[in-house]
Amino acid sequence: MESDRVPKIISFVCNWCSYDELGSDDDTKVIRVMCGGRVDPVEVFRALKGGADGVFVAGCPEDGCRYIEGNKKMMGRMERVSRALEYLGLDGRLRVIKATPNDAVKLPEMMNVFRERLKKLGQSQLKNGEF
């Protein structure tokens, strides 16, 4: 079901690769983290519980982490979160991106693709919180 409603997105973005390319607006909040490995599964769940329609996480590609293996930790954690979301019937609401600083110019476009996907999924049913 498509409507004019713009999906609410919380994005956790690594300072070193992606942060410069993305900006916050009314419906998309960009949260700068010093490393993708900083994003705890709890934060993704809390964002969704709080009423976000989707969560976008961007970190550095393999071998590109400033803190040696933060990106590996990020991938491991986010894989678990996406499995858990699948179990909960919320698949597709988490997008994890690995971007080098050079790729980062494509991020706004990726965000748009994600936004379109969330539009198709419709509003999150967990609307007991406030964005």
Binding site: F45, K49, G89, Q125, L126
Partner: peptide, 10 residues
């Protein structure tokens, strides 16, 4: 957190 989401999810 998962249980809270579960309570409102399908």
């Amino acid at each position: 957190e998962i249980q809270e989401i579960m309570a409102s999810a399908d």
